[in-house]
Write a protein that binds this DNA or RNA. Structure first.
Length: 828
RNA sequence: GCCCUCGUAGCCCAAUCGGCAGAGGCAGCAGACUUAAAAUCUGCACAGUGUGGGUUCGAGUCCCACCGAGGGCACCA
């Protein structure tokens, strides 16, 4: 069809390097993605946010996936002519910078800000549709000033406090960790085995918000991944039950326990307190003290991982004392054991071995009595060694006899309350958030310790409390904060009384920084306040948040907590920060997470050099549903590259003029185009981007055929199809689509093109295929009008030759008609 | 141990309400173009949906059991 010269021209390959070099400076100059703050701009507004980056080096494959996915959402709303706010920033405090600084003998700022610059350049090259004018870094004093200010607001409300406690200690990071940062007994960051230390630390009182953190999830239902909501629910861990008071012989005040099974009170045959609790020390008889303390020593030696092993035999010490079961008036032994936790409930339990496996294991180990009080129909736990925690009829329980679990709980709670021996109660697994860290590269806690006045808040006018300029060995971990050794910084005057005082030398967990950054973005450079209420009104809450599931119970829980606190303080007028959440998966290789130590890293820069930015982005989004992991060994960036070149060639083939009247175009291609647009619109809004791309590929194939063997390159329908393809591709492949848009003769950027309008007339089909089944088996296909009546369709189906043959004169029991798509004939 | 999600072609993945198992891609094969290769274009083949039951006119889709994979929680009383 074409002479060889033309052929060469038509098969020209897309020079990716060249178009990247061509468009990057143009975008840089035009900044097409800045949000409008014009009060008269009445377009719909939308805040699209990606979880910000930690500047540990250049961008990697994980960033490439997450930001490619977030960018589809952002660019889609730009095309829909929304006023989109899609800001960028860095979570730039944290340990990796500090460790690098120690190695290099520098201040962490140097490494941090160099990495930020590298990532910023990479983000630009990767063509993420950011509004760069609101850029922030959490390690800037202009930012952490407000982190400190927020700490003080919480402090004033009694939501930031200091207490001595047995805390998680990471021996490798040389700092304490929050509960959320301990994963299966190991440090979330470095995987070192976490140990316990008795230390005085700062906490945020997140437990005050347990119930609300649960209740408000109702707003997120359906808009956050189910998995994340479940994880948060589990983490908050609400248990309903009762407090029950036990008298202990020789002790004045009763000891209270928390139980979820007050109905089994008559089966409580012994009593256990946490070995490492104060309570154990109060209850232990003098002559048992040495034994108890030896035991505690033993327990302390065990790591969390050993402690958590479920097959570990129960251990404990009899404290020499007896408690009185308030229901049976029986004397029961009081023991101390490490299977009871000091910081959950009251640190003491009533043990019901018949109906709780842990208690039964303990009873077996120390030959304590077992009393069945619920008849579950199962065998006697004392004989089988298997506790029966299920529901059944209460027995051996006086007034509770014959009741089921729910009624028994209700009744015993009434009795306890009447006798002032207890009451119904709720307990949560969630612990307060430990926020102090014994490291340098974080926001200093704005508190001064005065020998006369005690804890004194740094006056707001003196914020920020800047970090002193330390470097290299000065930052080396010593088990206490490096700031403590910076004497000229630590030593100060008490703001209240003026006497010699010392600054708090701990810094805040970096999760504090990230708990409010989304509030800072709209007024990122406002030096007078943390965030601007007018701007918050304009943009918040975040409409669509995009990020990894690894933050399900860290950043996402903390941010929800912060928002609720600020809501209570009257500083924000919403109580959930992120209306919708999209979790992207990980990029893995050969079924395993990529890691430097395994040496199976895929380098993003190399992938981009080989396939181009667009092909890498397209591959990330086409690989599968966004939340699935992408195994880079199983996907084909080469295929993406080929597809993009194929699409680009379409643009080159179009020979009609820019202002073509599409109405004059060939009908079947127009219908295909409009059907694709209609379908893609709903697919994008449900995040099914892989299917969007598949549909686009289909349209490319159809258009190719139309050009080569159909209506030809000059038909207006071809231009319409290629323009639609170009605009759709602009969500995934910014460079290729920009180039295509220009080839098509447009002067504006493709990001300003606007989402193509669907003409409903073109969605109507003049005939559809109707499936005719006999007993559910496909027997014929009919071409029918889409608005055919059921009666007519049934008649047509019954007349179909093949159907007549299959039925063979048999009587018909029923005919199911789903006009116009299906008829199912069921013979007797 | 408890809870959740998922098992569709050699591979990655599609399949509104239960209604023709296949849209798209990778890999494969064949052809066209080419001196040849690459590139490009065209065409082809491949599974009956992890297994066993059940509900239904009809099940990839709903229910039950089992197997397998992934994830979460895990001495939280």
């Amino acid at each position: 069809m074409n002479n060889p010269k033309d052929n060469q021209e038509l098969n020209a390959t897309l020079d990716i390097e060249a178009i990247q070099a061509k468009w990057l400076p143009i975008w840089e100059k035009k900044q097409p993605f800045n949000a409008s703050n014009d009060p008269d701009d009445d377009r719909k507004r939308i805040y699209v946010l990606d979880m910000f980056s930690y500047p540990s080096g250049d961008l990697h494959m994980g960033h490439a996936e997450a930001f490619a996915i977030g960018d589809v959402v952002s660019r889609y709303y730009f095309q829909k002519n929304y006023n989109v706010f899609h800001p960028v920033g860095w979570d730039s405090f944290g340990l990796p910078a500090e460790n690098a600084a120690i190695k290099r003998g520098e201040n962490p700022a140097k490494w941090t800000y160099a990495n930020i610059e590298t990532q910023a350049e990479s983000f630009k090259r990767y063509a993420i549709s950011f509004d760069w004018s609101h850029r922030l870094h959490t390690s800037d004093p202009e930012y952490y000033k407000w982190t400190q200010w927020l700490f003080l607001q919480l402090y004033k409300k009694g939501l930031a406090y200091r207490k001595a406690s047995n805390v998680n200690w990471c021996p490798s990071c040389q700092t304490v960790l929050a509960n959320e940062q301990v994963v299966a007994g190991a440090c979330e960051r470095c995987s070192a085995v976490v140990t316990k230390r008795e230390l005085t630390q700062w906490y945020f009182k997140i437990t005050d918000y347990s119930q609300r953190l649960l209740d408000d999830m109702e707003q997120l239902e359906g808009k956050w991944p189910e998995r994340v909501l479940t994880m948060q629910k589990n983490w908050i861990g609400k248990s309903e039950g009762a407090y029950v008071d036990f008298q202990v012989e020789g002790i004045e005040k009763p000891v209270t326990v928390f139980t979820t099974r007050p109905d089994t009170l008559f089966g409580a045959t012994f009593f256990v307190v946490a070995a490492d609790s104060k309570l154990a020390q109060e209850l232990v008889l003098e002559e048992k003290k040495i034994e108890l303390n030896n035991y505690i020593q033993e327990v302390r030696k065990a790591t969390d991982i050993e402690r958590l092993a479920t097959d570990r035999p129960k251990s404990g010490v009899f404290l020499g004392r007896y408690a009185i079961n308030p229901a049976t008036q029986q004397k029961i032994q009081v023991w101390a054991s490490d299977y009871v936790l000091a910081d959950y409930g009251t640190g003491a339990i009533m043990a019901v071995p018949a109906h709780d496996q842990r208690d039964l294991d303990f009873a077996k180990a120390f030959k304590l009595p077992v009393q069945v009080v619920v008849d579950t129909g199962e065998e006697d736990p004392a004989l089988t060694g298997v506790a029966t925690p299920g529901d059944g009829k209460l027995i051996n329980s006086g007034p509770l006899d014959g009741l089921d679990k729910v009624s028994a709980i209700k009744k015993i709670n009434e009795i306890l309350e009447k006798n002032k021996q207890g009451k119904g109660a709720v307990n949560f697994r969630l612990r307060d958030w430990l926020i102090s860290r014994q490291r340098y590269w974080g926001a200093p806690i704005p508190i001064i310790h005065c020998p006369k006045c005690g804890e004194v808040a740094v006056p707001e006018s003196e914020l920020p409390v800047r970090l002193p300029d330390l470097a290299g060995d000065q930052l080396a971990p010593k088990g206490t904060s490096p700031l403590a050794a910076a004497t000229s910084w630590v030593n100060t005057k008490c703001p209240k009384c003026g006497s010699d005082a010392q600054r708090d030398s701990d810094t805040m967990d970096t999760f504090v920084d990230s708990s409010w950054y989304y509030l800072r973005y709209p007024s990122a450079h406002d030096a007078t306040k943390a965030f601007d209420p007018a701007q918050l009104k304009r943009w918040l809450p975040v409409e669509q948040y995009v990020g990894g599931v690894e933050h399900a119970i860290l950043h996402l829980l903390y941010s929800r907590f912060f928002t609720k606190v600020l809501n209570d303080l009257g500083l924000v007028d919403f109580n959930e920060p992120f209306k919708a959440l999209l979790n992207q998966g990980q990029v893995i290789l050969d079924g395993a997470a990529m890691s430097k130590s395994k040496g199976n890293m895929v380098d993003l820069g190399e992938q981009i050099a080989e396939f181009g930015v667009d092909a890498v982005r397209l591959t990330m989004v086409f690989a599968g549903p966004p939340e699935d992991d992408i195994d880079w060994a199983e996907v084909s960036p080469g295929g993406s590259k080929k597809f993009l070149a194929r699409a680009w060639r379409l643009a080159k083939d179009v020979t009609s003029e820019v202002d073509e009247d599409f109405e004059k175009g060939e009908l079947s291609l127009r219908q295909a185009t409009h059907r694709t647009i209609a379908e893609i619109t709903t697919l994008i809004e449900s995040f099914r981007f892989n299917v969007v791309i598949a549909r686009t590929m289909e349209l490319v194939n159809v258009t190719r055929k139309a050009i080569d063997t159909g209506c030809g390159p000059k038909d207006p329908a071809v231009r319409e199809a290629v323009e639609a393809i170009t605009i759709i591709l602009s969500l995934f492949a910014p460079y290729t689509s920009e180039e295509m848009w220009e080839i098509l003769g447009h002067k504006e950027l493709v990001s300003k093109a606007g989402w193509p309008q669907v003409d409903p007339k073109l969605l109507v089909r003049d005939s559809v295929v109707c499936v005719v089944q006999v007993s559910g088996k496909l027997r014929a296909r009919l071409d029918v009008s889409p608005d055919i009546s059921s009666e007519e369709l049934e008649k047509l189906a019954l007349e179909t030759p093949n159907v007549v043959k299959i039925l063979d004169g048999k009587a018909i029991r029923t005919v199911i008609v789903r006009a116009p798509k299906l008829v199912n004939i069921v013979p007797e």
